[in-house]
Structures are given as structure tokens and as C-alpha cells.
Computed example of a mutant assay.
Amino acid sequence: MILKQIEESGIIAIVRGHQPQDVELIIGALRDGGIRTIEITMDTPGVCEVIERAAKKFAGEMLIGAGTVLDPESARMALAAGARFIFSPSLNLETIRMTKRYGAISIPGVFTPTEMLTAFEHGADAVKIFPANVLGPAYIKAVRDPLPQIPVIPTGGVNEENLSAYIKSGAIAVGIGGALVRKTQKVDREYLEELTQKAARLVEKGRSARG
């Protein structure tokens, strides 16, 4: 069900390193642009409280997960705070087990077909191809040919220009960080309006790419 929501959303917006008081404003702006899945990274100040507040405030509207989760202990903390999925930059089998123990969606980071299959065989619901921009959309298509049963979510270097190519290559969704939610010292009305407009363009590109 949750993985289906991620696929329908098509875009996981990565919110990294913003101050706690700004995160909910950013999520609201992304929601207004049509994005429904948010990854709050574990290096966010006060991350567990931030996840808990966001999960409660946007319940029924947005799917809130945790990102840059490197170990099972961090996964457990994020899940206890209300994260619905765990996004990692690397493959840690114990993190997958912990995530599945709590009934959440596990999306570990992988790069090779061997890592993809290992993750999937140990319970991962999908895999995060990271960093995707090193090999590009052609690589996604190439690994999907022999491993079509494994849902892939390319992340790293995905932007407005290449989003469509990644979706057409067979990705169920993409993770987008700095190309969407750029870091800034001031989260003001102008920034939030720009964020909503950018989100809307990305959502439309994703829909068009799906045909």
C-alpha cells in the first residue's frame, strides 16, 4: 500500500539540513505543488521530533519517511517517531530487518545488480540506485531488463531535465534533493512560492513520462 503511494506520487522530495521551524513550511509548499512523499534526512537538527510533528500535521495528506539512515538503531528511532519508510544511501541488511520488523517500507541504497538482488532477497521493498547520475537512465534500463521484479528509485543528480528519462527507463519513482529543495538561509514567501512552482513542474513531467 505504502509502496503503491510512493509509485503514484512518483517523486520523493528530500528535505536535508533545514532548521526544524522551516521543515513544515517546506513540506506545505511541496504539497501545494502536488508532491505527496517526503524524505526527512537523519542529519536534520532534532530529526525525530521533526518527523513526529510532520507525520501528525500532514497525516492523510503526505507520506513522511526518513532518509540517510545508516544503521538499524537510527531506523528504529525514525520509525518510532512516525516515519513510514526508510531510505538509505547504502545497503545494511540489519537496517532492512529492523524496518520490516516494524512494518515499514525499506528502500536501501545499491549500485550493482548483485546489491540489488541481495537487498531484495533480504526483504527490501524497493532499491535506491545511488548515485544515479554516475551512470544515468540507460543504466536503470539495463539493470531492469534482467531484474524486472525489483522496483528501483534512482536518486542523486535527478533534476527537471532528466526526470522524464529516468521514469521512462523503468523507475517507479525518483528521489530529488538539491535540485528541488535547495538549501537557503531564509525560508521566506518567495522561496516557498518558487518551491511550489518547481514541484508542480516536476509532478507534471513525471505524469507525462508515464504516458
Rank of each mutant, 00 (worst) to 15 (best):
A78K: 03
L79M: 15
A80L: 12
G82A: 07
G82Q: 01
G82K: 01
R84G: 08
R84K: 15
F85P: 01
I86Q: 04
F87A: 07
S88P: 05
S88N: 09
P89M: 01
S90C: 08
S90N: 11
S90W: 00
N92F: 02
L93Y: 04
L93A: 03
T95A: 13
T95S: 14
I96G: 05
I96S: 02
M98Q: 13
K100D: 01
R101Q: 15
R101V: 00
Y102H: 14
G103R: 12
G103H: 05
I105E: 00
I105L: 04
G109V: 02
V110N: 03
F111H: 13
F111I: 11
F111E: 02
T112K: 14
T112Y: 13
T114G: 11
T118R: 14
A119V: 06
F120T: 02
G123V: 01
A124Q: 03
A124E: 03
A124W: 05
D125G: 07
V127F: 10
V127E: 06
K128D: 11
K128R: 08
K128C: 04
P131A: 06
P131T: 11
P131C: 08
A132H: 05
V134N: 06
G136V: 15
G136M: 12
G136I: 15
P137Q: 04
A138L: 03
A138T: 12
A138G: 13
A138R: 13
Y139N: 13
K141I: 05
K141A: 15
A142F: 06
A142H: 01
V143P: 09
V143R: 03
V143I: 15
R144N: 15
R144S: 14
P146S: 09
P146C: 02
L147E: 05
L147R: 03
P148T: 03
Q149C: 07
I150P: 06
I150S: 13
P151M: 07
P151I: 08
T155H: 03
G157V: 12
G157N: 07
N159V: 14
N162W: 01
N162Y: 00
L163N: 01
L163S: 02
Y166I: 13
